[in-house]
Amino acid sequence: MRLLVTLAGVLLAASPAFAGDDWMPPVRDATVLKECGACHMAFQPGFLPARSWTRMMGSLADHFGEDASLPDDKIEIIRAYLTANGGDVVNRGRAAKYMQWVAPGGTPQRITENPDFLRKHRFPESVWTDPKVVTRSNCAACHSGAERGYYE
């Protein structure tokens, strides 16, 4: 019995928080962390469906106005990881909440346009123009645990 309780405790600790809805499984792939993280936080793939990542990895020459081209072998590694961990694949917790708003077959590209994001980020303009923030996609400016998937 005590063993069962211990086991249950270990299991709970291992999945910190599909209990709390603000957790998103963090990126664990070294290539994704290095290449995506070179210019911005490597966003957790659970924020977009797999098909969005497929589209994004096929259009890196115009990546939100930037040329983010990469060698094909790197693109393949990153695409495989992002699509294997897309929001429609995770489909729990915060990822499921984001996926509710994605049209069937839709391939949204901007995480910051998801209604679940907008609902939680209704701030005066002065917050967004703070020099530490720069842009709405700079999660870590306010969420110190963002890279680990914590968005309290």
Binding site: C39, H40, K132, V134, T135, S137, N138
Partner: peptide, 9 residues
């Protein structure tokens, strides 16, 4: 430094 486009450190 700080990325002037993304705010990334």
């Amino acid at each position: 430094g700080q990325n002037a486009k993304t705010g990334r450190a």
